[in-house]
């Protein structure tokens, strides 16, 4: 009995971690700038490839993963400085720009890197509860998701950057008038968002087969989590991931992965009929 319950919890934690990690970077960029970064999948892919390349060059996995996140972050800052910052008064256009970039990058990678690479394999290690065997790495992923949310909380609530970023998020004109260098905040936030996307890729890199279009595996989940969570990553993403994770786990167990995904999407469409600004918009409205 305990083993069954643990197994269900384990699967839930797995889905939850996936949703949180896939969505965090997207949610930060959306919350700060109102932009949905359609190149999100490519940042994830970037994290994956850098990690795999690093391991193949002989780096230890965690170092390669950190490198993957860092690379994605740096590319994010460059992208923000060269393209995105020109489009802040036109949010829909900036989304289209990220879509254009996404196309260029995916197809460019197909041209330069070929259609598939050898993966690096999931780190060994498993443990047993009752009759079930579980992969330890999945627990690492769950812990990483929790740590990422904790780190974001500390970053936004306890650091100088966080204070300035929250001020900019609430009222950019006022923040500017008070001397906040908002362009710097935007560039940094875009970088943090991209780095988190890269980290997501880096963490899942050992579990996947590598193809340049693999970013797509993550983006549907990332999008729906952000849609349900709303604009505030700190209070929206976790509840959204929990709700969607629960639906997904139940449907997966009942009918399999693909019904899980479609069921989750239908749930999202139903949720936004009631909460058009997502969970965080609803929470903020209630407490206003």
């Amino acid at each position: 009995m305990f083993a069954e319950i643990f197994s269900i919890l384990f699967q839930f934690a797995d889905v939850f971690a996936f949703l949180v990690l896939a969505a965090a970077g997207l949610a930060i960029i959306f919350g700060m700038m109102g932009i949905i970064n359609l190149a999100h999948g490519e940042f994830i892919t970037c994290g994956i490839y850098v990690t795999v390349a690093g391991v193949q060059q002989g780096l230890p996995l965690p170092v390669a993963q950190a490198l993957g996140a860092l690379t994605a972050g740096i590319i994010g800052v460059i992208l923000e400085r060269t393209v995105i910052h020109r489009l802040y008064n036109r949010p829909l256009d900036s989304i289209l720009a990220t879509w254009g970039i996404s196309l260029i990058v995916t197809q460019g990678m197909l041209v330069t890197l070929g259609s598939s690479w050898a993966g690096i394999g999931t780190p060994e290690g498993s443990f047993q509860v009752g009759e079930y065997t579980f992969s330890s790495y999945r627990l690492v992923l769950f812990a990483a998701a929790v740590l990422v949310m904790l780190a974001l909380y500390l970053l936004f609530m306890r650091t100088r950057y966080g204070v300035l970023a929250r001020a900019t998020m609430q009222n950019p004109q006022m923040a500017r008038a008070l001397g906040v260098r908002t362009p710097w905040i935007y560039a940094t936030s875009f970088g943090v968002g991209a780095a988190l996307a890269g980290l997501c890729g880096a963490l899942y890199a050992p579990t996947m087969t590598l193809i340049p279009t693999m970013g797509i595996t993550f983006i549907v989940e990332a999008f729906v989590t952000v849609v349900v969570g709303g604009a505030n990553v700190l209070i929206g993403t976790v509840p959204a991931a929990m709700v969607l994770g629960a639906i997904r786990t139940a449907l997966n167990a009942w009918q399999g992965q693909i019904i899980g995904q479609i069921g989750m999407l239908i749930a999202v469409i139903l949720v936004i009929r009631v909460l058009p600004e997502g969970v965080s918009g609803w929470l903020l409205r209630r407490n206003r």
Binding site: L87, D93, A97, G100, I104, Q107, V111
Partner: peptide, 18 residues
């Protein structure tokens, strides 16, 4: 090359927006 055609389409979108 289909890839180059798609890269061009991405570039068209980016250039249009900018």
């Amino acid at each position: 090359s289909q890839q180059y055609a798609l890269i061009l389409m991405g570039a068209v979108l980016l250039a249009t927006v900018l």
